[in-house]
């Protein structure tokens, strides 16, 4: 899952980045509206966490710009503006959720999970296939009730493939969703993580379609 956090308060932004990374998200950050849009146009994000009071380009304008370009992305507003009117205008302009500051980070995590479930049209908080169980909230993977220790990236790859089960996902798309912008697209880190993931799982769970990508049947 790749997430973009836009927040002008740097100490809060750092905490959010650290927290999301701990939960195996690939995180990019932006301190103002302008940087946020630059980041946004460069990559595919699953979720955007957006503060409203932003320097340079206002949060609501960032929201409008993102919504005009992409109607599928999940946007959650995180704001200290807490009147009913603020919430209505935020939601009407295309945000999927609105969380008031001060907030609990655990609640933010839960809301982000709920939004991604909605995006991938699943009601389950647990993904299952071929004896593998992946807990979205606990960030744990089991094979036949035995814990499988995965790296953050390995977990991210498996999560994305299971969310898109049955569909072929290209290597680029996997990198886009699992790594943040600091990743080097030409390095073989992806291949290394993929092969180590495959070794930990039963044979043939992750299949390759030559020249196209990977899928879990």
């Amino acid at each position: 899952m790749r997430i973009l956090i836009i927040e002008d308060e740097s100490s809060l932004l750092n905490a959010l980045k650290k927290g999301f990374e701990k939960h195996y998200y690939a995180v990019d950050t932006a301190l103002d509206g302008e940087a946020a849009l630059e980041r946004y146009y460069e990559a595919y994000y699953d979720i955007v966490v957006l503060d409203l009071n932003l320097p340079k380009v206002d949060g609501l304008d960032v929201l409008k710009a993102i919504r005009e370009e992409n109607s599928n992305i999940n946007i959650i507003i995180l704001s200290a503006r807490n009147t009913v009117e603020d919430k209505i205008s935020g939601l009407d302009m295309g945000a999927n959720d609105y969380l008031e500051k001060p907030f609990s980070f655990k609640e933010l995590l839960a809301r982000v999970r709920a939004l991604s479930r909605r995006k991938y049209r699943t009601e389950d908080t647990v993904l299952k296939a071929h004896g593998i169980t992946l807990h979205l909230a606990r960030r744990e993977v089991y094979y036949n009730d035995e814990s499988v220790p995965l790296t953050k990236k390995g977990f991210g790859i498996l999560e994305y493939l299971l969310l898109n089960q049955g569909e072929v996902v290209s290597g680029e798309a996997l990198i886009e969703h699992v790594w943040n912008h600091e990743a080097d697209m030409f390095s073989n880190a992806f291949k290394v993580h993929l092969s180590s993931l495959r070794k930990k799982l039963p044979k043939d769970v992750i299949r390759t379609v030559r020249g196209e990508g990977y899928y879990v049947p």
Partner: peptide, 25 residues
């Protein structure tokens, strides 16, 4: 009052988020 609340909420959010993320470790 809304402005004052807003100005107070931002530092509170920052402290809370930092503590909570720290607690997860």
């Amino acid at each position: 009052a809304a402005n004052a609340a807003h100005e107070l909420k931002t530092p509170i959010s920052s402290i809370l988020a930092n503590l909570e993320v720290h607690d997860m470790e």
